[in-house]
Simulated assay, not measured.
Amino acid sequence: MEPGIIEVNGLRKEYGDFVAVDNLSFSVAKGQIFGIVGPNGAGKTTTLKMLSSLVRPSSGNIYMKGLDISRDAVEIKSFLGFLPEESPLYEGMGVEDYLMFFSELYSIPKDRAKKRIRELLFDLSLNADGKKIGDLSKGMKRKVAIARSLINDPDILIYDEPASGLDPMTSRYITDYVRSLKQSGKTIIFSAHNLFQVESLCDRILILKSGKLVTLGTAEEIRKEYGKIQYRLEFKVDDVEEYVISEIKTVDDNYVVTTNDIDVVNQTTKWVASRGGDIVEMRTIVPSLEEIFLELMGVELFVD
């Protein structure tokens, strides 16, 4: 198998006696969106900071484009963009001045930097009208932080909760923008608590718990491995005293059976027909990534 643009092997981070990330290994192919999810304290942010060379691993290796981050961090930073969850900005500066300042840190020629800034402001619908960053809304500030992460036109992006705490419209905009970055050829690793967003956006998903890998794969692969498909059968019948096939509930004037066993569905439909009843609805309930995630985290789910 061809190695990924990012290769992580046996990654571990200790803070004293506390192990934040424990023997984590994964690969990310060029042009993929790779999601890392887990509850608070699972090790997501620590992992992203190690990938961004902000935190040194206790052990293990990280390679990007074949370069070892422990030896080649400066070269890697030239094609890497990082967006932390909390991203302080220089609030007394104007947006363009702020982005120009960061372009100078990357030694981008001034004319090229001006062109890049115009492109980013247009792509992000970021019209600051000469305002200082401190006068912008939270959503606009997040767009400025995203523009900053893209100023050097990096091939690899590492985003920690890019849409965290934003209103639904801005969150949707940023989600769509991240998708467009993939279409332009960029490779993206990001963490998020919004599992619907992760499921709709990511090519592959890594689930962490207590610093350890729980599972890794596409949403469909994870659903196939851990998801329990349920069947819900709603029907009308005059008398259910003789019904002994499965647990039955009353919903309004109807009866409902929910089961993981398709044989129970078949037996129940035959029984209803034999009693002169009617099938009101029969549907398959496919678990969402969020439901699978909660079950993997040990949270009990209740299904009506």
Score class of each variant (00 low, 15 high):
M1H: 13
E2D: 12
P3Q: 14
G4I: 08
G10V: 00
E14I: 08
L24Q: 05
G35P: 01
G38N: 09
M50A: 07
S52K: 02
L54M: 14
M64A: 06
M64D: 03
L67Y: 09
L67S: 06
L80C: 06
S87Y: 10
V95T: 12
K110Q: 12
K115L: 13
I117K: 02
D123V: 05
N127Q: 15
K131I: 08
G134I: 11
K143L: 06
L150P: 03
I151L: 07
D155K: 14
P162T: 08
A163H: 00
S164F: 07
G165I: 10
Y173S: 10
Y177L: 07
R179A: 13
R179I: 10
A192G: 11
V198F: 03
E199F: 01
S210N: 15
G217D: 08
E220G: 08
E220R: 13
I229K: 14
F235Y: 06
D238Q: 14
E247N: 13
D253F: 08
Y255N: 04
T258W: 00
T259F: 05
D261S: 10
D263F: 11
V264E: 04
V265C: 03
R275Q: 13
I279K: 04
V280Q: 04
P287D: 11
I292Q: 02
I292N: 00
L296D: 05
M297D: 06
F302S: 15
V303E: 15
